[in-house]
Design a protein around this nucleic acid. Structure first.
Length: 284
DNA sequence: TGCCAGGAATTGC
DNA sequence: GCAATTCATGGC
């Protein structure tokens, strides 16, 4: 097996440093901001290195240790190297979100490295402040996942399916969260819930199936679609962070109502996910 | 100190 | 149906 190393550039604006900055917000990721490097645990077991070499205006990259061409395409898809950002920035230029798209220009929507991990992470993040949620996430991964060559990998759903609620309770998970995570893991482990299948379904179909599981509501389904599957047009109305970001952008003394946010959807579509992404960046 | 946190299920009317 | 309550605990 000879690992493949390649170098490539993009024909559009792409700020890799901003992509890395956001990835670094998740403590499970192995990100070296100074070295402009991220190490990606692949499903096949190897760890792939992606390093930024160019500028935001003329982005280029070095990708190392891919086992085949399919992995190269997978990484390009995860980082949305195939999705030009210039048109999206232009779409928001004359909207109320123009200033934050200027401020964070070239920030891509990078997908999670693991669909299952994204789902577990979303459950953990429900209702908790980011700091404590990250603490719980690291306890989860350190207890049941693997660290290979310095890179953390989420546990398998099969492993979590066998846990008792009390084991997660001991790590300060709520009983409900523990039940949600174990229940979903059991559904995945026994084949009832097929996350990979979701890649071929549309947003509504994925949402309908996901929310039928205990512990998954609209917010979690929307987050999974955005960051798990990289879908471009979702905006989690229930998200307190987005509400606070809009409060700030709109100069309000209270959080906006659901309807006040909804009336902006036509102007933001079909890139609602990017509106959400840049709003989150604006308060991070 | 008391309210809030990148929600969702459950209960009560 | 829909609003209020509960869950758990750290952060500020």
């Amino acid at each position: 097996m000879f690992p493949i190393d390649i170098q490539f550039s993009l024909p559009f604006t792409y700020n890799f440093d901003r992509a890395l900055a956001r990835l670094a917000g998740d403590p499970i990721n192995s990100v070296d901001l100074e070295g402009r490097l991220v190490r990606i645990p692949m499903e096949e077991g190897n760890i792939l290195n992606l390093q930024g070499m160019g500028t935001a205006d003329q982005p280029s990259f070095v990708l190392k240790n891919a086992v085949d061409e399919l992995q190269i395409e997978a990484v390009k898809s995860i980082f949305h190297f195939d999705k030009p950002l210039d048109g999206i920035g232009a779409h928001f230029a004359d909207t109320d979100l123009g200033p934050i798209f200027m401020e964070h220009e070239g920030t891509p929507l990078v997908r999670s490295f693991s669909l299952y991990g994204e789902l577990m992470k979303s459950i953990i993040h429900q209702q908790l402040n980011l700091s404590f949620a990250n603490t719980l996430l690291m306890r989860f991964v350190e207890s049941y996942g693997d660290k290979i060559d310095g890179v953390w990998r989420y546990p398998s759903p099969e492993r979590i399916a066998l846990l008792d609620v009390s084991e997660l309770r001991d790590m300060q998970f709520s009983t409900r969260k523990a039940e949600y995570m174990i229940g979903l893991s059991q559904a995945i482990a026994n084949g009832t819930l097929d996350l990979e299948k979701f890649r071929q379904l549309d947003d509504d179909e994925v949402t309908a199936e996901l929310v039928s599981y205990r512990g998954v509501g609209p917010w979690t389904a929307q987050g999974f679609l955005m960051f798990g599957l990289g879908r471009p047009n979702l905006f989690p109305l229930a998200d307190v962070g987005l509400q606070n970001a809009l409060k700030k952008v709109w100069g309000m003394d209270r959080k906006p109502t659901r309807d006040e946010m909804l009336v902006r959807f036509p102007a933001w579509s079909p890139y609602l996910s990017y509106a959400a992404l840049y709003l989150w960046r604006s308060i991070e």
